Computed example of a mutant assay.
Amino acid sequence: MENSRLDASTLEHFRTVLEAQRAELLEQTAHHETSLAEVRVARDGESDDEHDPEGPTIASEWSRLTGLQEAGARELTVIDKALARVENGSFGICTSCGNPIARARLDARPAAELCIDCARRAEERH
């Protein structure tokens, strides 16, 4: 924790926030998995959804749900990395320049690993 300028109570606050985000994400993932199972059953049935003007097709629903699953998996990785930084004492320190990440940025994006300046530079490169 010698590199971190965040005190123990602040680190604990962010640990709690990140763990809550992680739990919510796992709950959403479970819901999406249940929905995917339902779509799988419909896909394997004799349903002719391509001509149903009332709702999305099985293919589009499958695509939407798998996209949500993939995004959730990426976000879970980001949160797990942030929790690891809390554990090893590097949370709140920019992984690029080594400077502290502003508290306001951490409040807005608790899993942030870059300070705002490095995040802007990274965005400009993409």
Rank of each mutant, 00 (worst) to 15 (best):
I101Y: 01
C94L: 00
I58Y: 02
S96E: 02
G55P: 01
E54Q: 15
I101K: 03
L6P: 01
I79M: 03
R22D: 04
C118R: 03
M1Y: 04
E33L: 11
D44F: 03
I58E: 04
T34H: 15
L26R: 14
D117E: 15
E113K: 10
E124F: 05
L106F: 00
E27C: 12
R22W: 13
A59N: 10
I93L: 06
L11M: 07
G92N: 02
L76Y: 06
Q28H: 13
A30V: 07
A119R: 01
T16I: 06
A71K: 13
S4K: 00
D48R: 13
E70T: 14
G92Q: 00
E75H: 08
L26E: 07
N3S: 11
S9R: 15
R120K: 09
W62Y: 10
D49G: 09
A73V: 14
A42C: 09
P100D: 04
S60K: 10
R125S: 00
C97I: 10
N3D: 10
A122F: 00
R109D: 13
L25D: 01
R43F: 13
A20M: 08
V41T: 14
L83T: 04
L26T: 07
E24C: 05
L26K: 13
R5Q: 13
G72E: 01
D117I: 10
A104S: 12
G55C: 09
T77G: 07
A20W: 08
S35N: 12
E61Y: 03
D80R: 15
E24H: 11
A108W: 01
F14T: 00
D52G: 02
D48W: 14
A73S: 14
T77W: 06
V41E: 15
P56F: 10
A104I: 14
A112S: 13
A112W: 00
L114E: 02
N99D: 15
R85L: 02
S9G: 07
S35T: 11
R109H: 13
E24P: 07
G67P: 01
L36R: 03
S96N: 11
T34S: 15
S60A: 07
S35I: 09
V86L: 05
C115N: 02
A84Q: 14
K81A: 12
H32E: 12
G72K: 06
R109P: 07
